[in-house]
C-alpha cells in the first residue's frame, strides 16, 4: 500500500504523526512528512489511523 500526501492541503494539525508515529513525522514547521511512502503490511493499520484522523483530508492511499 502506498501513501500520498497533499502538502497544499496539510495545515499541520499533527494528528497523523501523533497517532501513527511509525508512518508519519513532522517537519520543522509541524507539517507532515512520510517516513514510509510504501507502507509495510505490519504498519497498514497505523497508517490508516493517521489518515482517517486528518481533519483536512490531506492523506490518501494510492493503489
Amino acid at each position: 500500500m502506498k501513501l500520498k500526501i497533499d502538502l497544499d492541503i496539510c495545515q499541520g494539525h499533527g494528528r497523523c504523526y501523533d497517532l501513527a508515529p511509525k508512518v508519519f513525522r513532522e517537519d520543522d514547521r509541524g507539517y507532515v512528512e512520510l517516513i514510509h511512502e510504501t507502507v509495510p503490511p505490519e504498519l497498514e493499520e497505523e497508517a490508516r489511523k493517521g489518515k482517517d484522523n486528518c481533519p483536512e483530508l490531506a492523506i490518501d492511499f494510492v493503489n
Binding site: G12, G14, D18, E26, D28, R29, G30
Partner: peptide
C-alpha cells in the same frame, strides 16, 4: 512560515 516553527509539537 516564520511562526509555525515556534509553536510546532517538536
Amino acid at each position: 512560515k516564520i511562526l509555525d516553527n515556534q509553536f510546532s509539537r517538536k
